[in-house]
């Protein structure tokens, strides 16, 4: 008998009382001002949120960020910002190792934990979410920034469809570690800074 069959048989031999799935309906938390709450939580985890009306405003904010102003290799997958790396032409993701700054689209944001949802449907190399020194996300929200922010994770999963071959992730703030004496250090392996722009254009 294969290991697979042995394991399944061993599990089926156990007498375990049947327990129902509890369902996920609940009076889950909502926020009066999702934009403000998202910004507060993101700031607490080391990131920054901005609500802007034009691409020029994004450029204005970024130009004050030294990491952007001094960046020599910029990947932008958002039409509003111009980069200087031909991302689509790159075949080997290792070639992205020296990217200083990336500006990437995110699908939506979650107020309760300051996360944005990203996936690789529009991104050829998923490593671009993790390898750049600094990262900015642009979330499109034509009418109101709050439309692009859900209150909690239950609503977040209602907006995501999983099951097709795909990579997706919630990203909340820049990468961090506290493995040395519980001292928080921003910039462990991934991004050293993270800005989220809600673009109402």
């Amino acid at each position: 008998m294969s290991s697979r069959d042995q394991i399944l048989k061993s599990i089926r031999n156990q007498v375990v009382a049947s327990v129902d799935h509890p369902g996920l309906a609940g009076d889950w938390i909502r926020y009066d001002d999702r934009v403000a709450h998202f910004a507060t939580v993101l700031a607490a985890v080391g990131g920054a949120a901005h609500v802007v009306d034009t691409a020029e405003e994004i450029v204005a904010v970024l130009s004050k960020v030294p990491a952007f102003a001094q960046a020599s290799k910029i990947v932008s997958l958002c039409e509003q910002i111009s980069g200087n790396v031909d991302f689509v032409a790159i075949d080997d993701p290792h070639a992205l190792e020296d990217v200083d700054f990336a500006v990437l689209p995110a699908q939506f944001a979650v107020a309760e934990n300051g996360a944005v949802w990203v996936d690789d449907a529009v991104v050829k190399h998923r490593v671009i979410y993790f390898i750049p020194q600094h990262l900015s996300f642009i979330v499109r929200s034509p009418a109101d920034a709050a439309d692009a922010i859900v209150d909690n994770m239950h609503l977040a999963y209602e907006r995501i469809s999983l099951g097709e071959p795909q990579f997706g992730a919630f990203v909340s703030g820049p990468s961090k570690t506290a493995d040395i004496e519980q001292s928080l250090v921003i910039g462990a392996h991934g991004a050293r800074s993270l800005n989220v722009f809600f673009l109402r254009q």
């Binding site: 934990n113 909690n152 994770m153 992730a169 919630f170 506290a178």
Partner: peptide
């Protein structure tokens, strides 16, 4: 939704881990 809300809050007192990656 239930588990990601509980995990990091219980583990390190963060609202969620920085990266929660879904591999399909």
């Amino acid at each position: 939704s239930v588990f990601l809300r509980l995990l990091a809050r219980s583990a390190t007192g963060q609202p969620i881990t920085t990266y929660s990656s879904h591999f399909h």
